[in-house]
Design a binder for these strands. Structure first.
Lengths: 164, 164
DNA sequence: TGGCAATTGTTGTCGTCAACAACAATCTTC
DNA sequence: GAAGATTGTTGTTGACGACAACAATTGCCA
């Protein structure tokens, strides 16, 4: 495997095509190290994977969690309001709600004041389920702390607070 | 519990269906404000959109930029090595390289030492193009600074440095 | 008051992206 | 030399963002 790296062969023969074995941690990222977007992307992938795994038993993904949380904290919102608040396409929210409604976590109630819109509510089952989701989400947040440190997580939330 | 706290809505009592009009900045995010993942996701969306817009004239997306940068800094890498280093599926990298090769920015050279793999190189055209991309990327990074502040950007890079 | 523009939910398409699975060609290892 | 692993490729699935079009309904205003 990495044994060939031990020999004193030329560092890199890039003249034609061939090249020696290169360890993954030996590859230079060059300009990428100075780009916030790259670090943020990698971090977001990690954090979402941990969230999905931690909430794997209850089969809830980050976007679903955000929808349930906002509806739980603001009963009666319209789909448009939820979509706008969370930065989700209202077309996409339709499918998300279809799924959550099938699972009896959310119900769409026809609004009396505006017959175009639906008032979104958690079901009783949805309330208790969300409580469990939140406990698992807190556990996920602990994983984040373990990964980047408590102080760094706090600082991160503070820096990015304006994007909520 | 935190779940019952969500019910204490002072103004708007929406027992059944109807609801009054609600301003977007009046909707409570509840538990989401304490989740790093939510803030990071929103920030990542913003940062990618700015990157795509800033590099819009040259039609280069963040992932393409990262591939070009790594190849440029490490000529002769195999597709597997690039994929592993950037956290991209090797199946996905195939399409990315197809596109970049069609645009004459990258070339796949058959490796002499391992006839399964390709040695990846920038074309001469790719070299000069990447130089321009990097200038635009620096401009994008300035936008990030303007958005969150110079010191905060530095700290962000420092906090997330382990994910590169 | 009547008509027209705007809004809401819905359906559909398109493109990006992560996650898998399967495959042929080619090493590697025993 | 045979068995197993690796590399590039093709394909599928599903989550997701961005648009466009549509019917029903509301709001506006002339």
């Amino acid at each position: 495997m990495t044994a060939s790296a031990a020999q004193t062969s030329p560092r890199k023969r890039t003249g034609n095509g061939a090249a020696r074995r290169i360890d993954a941690d030996e590859i230079r990222l060059d300009a990428l190290v100075g780009h916030a977007g790259y670090a943020v992307r990698r971090f977001q992938i990690w954090i979402f994977q941990d969230f999905i795994k931690t909430l794997g038993d209850v089969d809830i993904r980050p976007t679903q969690y955000s929808v349930l949380t906002v509806i739980g904290a603001n009963p009666g919102l319209s789909q448009m309001a939820v979509a706008k608040r969370l930065g989700i396409e209202r077309a996409r929210l339709v499918h998300l709600l279809d799924s959550l409604e099938q699972r009896k976590l959310v119900k769409r109630i026809k609004s009396k004041t505006d017959r175009r819109s639906h008032a979104l509510h958690l079901t009783a089952q949805g309330e208790t389920a969300l409580a469990k989701f939140k406990r698992l989400a807190v556990e996920h947040e602990r994983h984040v702390e373990e990964k980047i440190g408590k102080a760094n997580r706090e600082r991160l939330l503070q820096i990015l607070g304006g994007f909520t």
